[in-house]
């Protein structure tokens, strides 16, 4: 857990030496500059970036684990008789969406205060001819529109998932015959 006030980590777990050097520069001996090497005003919001990154990577490992588990459990071909595992998989549907969103938080929040890293500050990139009301309206508009579309999507996915493949195919056949008559 980071502690931005005192410029240190309040709690540390699972330390892997030299890993970041390798991730950032593909060389385990490369020097990674710490946050303290940058002036305070050039640092991103630490806690949010820190937690989002860990959550995203954690979810990534969870997906690998679940996929591995499903390969093991389906080896005998009796996956259908394991409702507990199937339930876990069903409710894990939402997790990749969460991982994608927090991945964006890592990328966007972690890059601050830059909008184009080391070239253009976000504060300098703000449009002068758009006022906050316009931005607020468009933000609310996008939220409502995408919220509405998400609801429709969930409704349709549930509808078709509940029917199952056989029922949909037979329904299509019967309806086309019925309409033709």
């Amino acid at each position: 857990m980071p502690d931005p006030e005192n410029e240190r980590n309040a709690m540390e777990a699972f330390k892997v030496p030299k890993m970041l050097s390798y991730l950032a520069f593909h060389d385990s001996n490369a020097e990674v500059k710490g946050l303290k090497a940058y002036p305070k005003e050039d640092r991103p919001p630490v806690t949010l970036t820190f937690l989002s990154f860990r959550l995203m990577v954690g979810l990534g490992f969870l997906f690998i684990f679940l996929s591995f588990l499903s390969v093991v459990l389906s080896r005998k071909g009796n996956m259908e008789s394991k409702p507990f595992f199937l339930n876990i998989m069903l409710f894990s549907l939402i997790l990749p969406y969460i991982a994608v969103q927090i991945g964006w938080i890592v990328a966007e929040v972690g890059r601050q205060p830059w909008i184009v890293y080391s070239l253009l500050k976000t504060a300098d990139a703000v449009s002068k001819s758009i006022n906050t009301t316009q931005v607020l309206i468009s933000f609310v508009g996008f939220t409502l529109l995408y919220g509405f579309l998400a609801l429709i999507d969930v409704y349709l996915l549930t509808k078709y998932a509940k029917k199952g493949p056989e029922e949909i195919i037979s329904e299509m056949k019967s309806s086309s015959v019925a309409q033709e008559v």
Partner: peptide, 16 residues
């Protein structure tokens, strides 16, 4: 920037 609101209305309409 100048046509922000107008272009957003077009965008919303095209999405829908």
């Amino acid at each position: 920037s100048y046509l922000y609101s107008a272009l957003l209305i077009i965008l919303f309409a095209l999405i829908l």
